[in-house]
Design a protein around this nucleic acid. Structure first.
Length: 400
DNA sequence: TCGTGTTTAGGTCTCT
DNA sequence: AGAGACCTAAACACGA
């Protein structure tokens, strides 16, 4: 059974801590609600479908510049949305839905500017009836989403139509979707940068000379395709690593305090369930020009593990290649017979649900640390009482 | 100057 | 308990 989530140790995120008893959503109710949307016809696994555009209960946020919720579906394929979103983006591609233009605070249903008060309408988990919208107040800004930074980056990149974003666009996507990250920006942005540099699953795509600007684009490594199985963006089972470091000892650094352990593992060949790309798949014939085809990490710059020169000069092709390669990862659950682009998004914590249910989702996380809530650190940061930011994280029970 | 990117270091937590 | 994933802080270099 997919989408089963252990809830008993998730008091904060499941939304009980910040509610009075009368206004608590049970975890089951939340999950039912989420599942109901996931299971809706045409919704399951559609990574580019947006429920809001069809959902009378949770109307779609209307990006500025659009007088009506756009019709159609697909990131980068929403009629009228792309043109509205493309302006001002570094890539010239539509940013991921949920970026500043799409999910800023002015879209919150109560219209509050500080994004701290929500008004939620919802379906009764028991009767499936639509209740009257009921005002809920929640201070969710101290609630840290259960997604790791790697997850957030991956989600943002996958949601962008070009499959690559600048650092600043990543920041924007994260802060717009998770108000938690509107505070202590120096802290988490440093972590984002660290994650981008440290993790092999992210590769840097240089800017074209005719598109000057600050910073490079970041994209997912073509072989990193399925780091988060079933689209569950919580904790990876295995870190993605290229096989290059083994041979050359160069590339993205691996020898940090934790890297030593990783080197040890790599030298022993890793584990069988590793998502390393020791045997990278080859791309099928592509409409892309052959020289620009990024077959695997072997085509990356041997020194820097970066995009090789052909792609440096054709970065506009690279996202397509990334997208194409992302379909090549072996299905970890072949018996499911999900198309790769579907099984990547059918989990309750998939970006699909996140993007489809922004209001609902935002309501559901209350932070970590159990019933006592999060404490206000000296920097107003969101640290649990015991400083344990892992406590209370959802535990997905996959295939159970 | 500031944003970006890399690297090191040390810590917590989960999983086996 | 050990290994691994992840978080945070910080120093440093580089370029717009």
């Amino acid at each position: 059974m997919l989408s089963a989530v252990k809830m008993e140790d998730l008091p904060e995120w499941s939304g009980s801590s910040y509610y009075g008893e009368a206004e608590c959503y049970s975890a089951a109710a939340n999950m039912n609600s989420m599942s109901s949307y996931m299971n809706a016809p045409g919704m399951t696994g559609s990574g580019h479908m947006n429920a809001h555009y069809m959902n009378p209960v949770h109307p779609a946020p209307v990006p500025p510049g659009l007088s009506h919720p756009p019709t159609g579906s697909g990131t980068g394929m929403i009629p009228g949305l792309n043109s509205a979103l493309q302006a001002g983006t570094s890539t010239g591609c539509a940013p991921p839905y949920g970026s500043a233009q799409g999910l800023s605070s002015e879209h919150y249903q109560d219209g509050s500017e500080d994004s701290k008060v929500y008004r939620l309408s919802y379906r009764s988990p028991v009767y499936g009836q639509v209740r009257e919208p009921k005002p809920y107040r929640r201070s969710y800004t101290h609630a840290k989403p259960p997604y790791s930074y790697i997850s957030l980056i991956t989600m943002a990149l996958q949601q962008s139509s070009c499959k690559m974003l600048t650092l600043n666009e990543l920041y924007t996507w994260i802060t717009d979707l998770f108000p938690f990250y509107r505070q202590n920006q120096q802290r988490w942005q440093n972590s984002i940068r660290h994650s981008l540099s440290f993790n092999d699953c992210f590769i840097k795509v240089p800017r074209l000379p005719d598109r000057p600007g600050k910073g490079s684009f970041w994209a997912l490594h073509p072989d990193s395709g399925n780091m988060f199985e079933n689209g569950c963006y919580l904790r990876r089972q295995k870190r993605f690593k290229t096989g290059k470091q083994q041979a050359t000892g160069t590339g993205k650094q691996q020898s940090t305090s934790t890297g030593g352990k990783e080197e040890k593992e790599e030298s022993s060949g890793g584990k069988s369930n590793s998502v390393t790309s020791d045997s990278p798949p080859s791309l099928p014939p592509s409409s892309s020009s052959p020289p620009a085809t990024l077959k695997s990490h072997q085509d990356l710059d041997p020194v820097q593990q970066r995009v090789p020169s052909p792609l440096v000069h054709t970065p506009h092709l690279y996202p397509m290649l990334v997208h194409e390669a992302s379909h090549l990862k072996p299905d970890p659950h072949p018996h499911h017979h999900y198309p790769p682009h579907l099984y990547s998004f059918n989990h309750p914590f998939s970006i699909n649900n996140l993007m489809n249910e922004p209001q609902l989702h935002r309501l559901e996380y209350g932070g970590y640390g159990g019933q006592t809530g999060v404490k206000q650190g000296p920097d107003n940061g969101a640290m649990p009482d015991n400083g344990n930011y892992y406590r209370g994280v959802y535990r997905p029970l996959m295939n159970s």
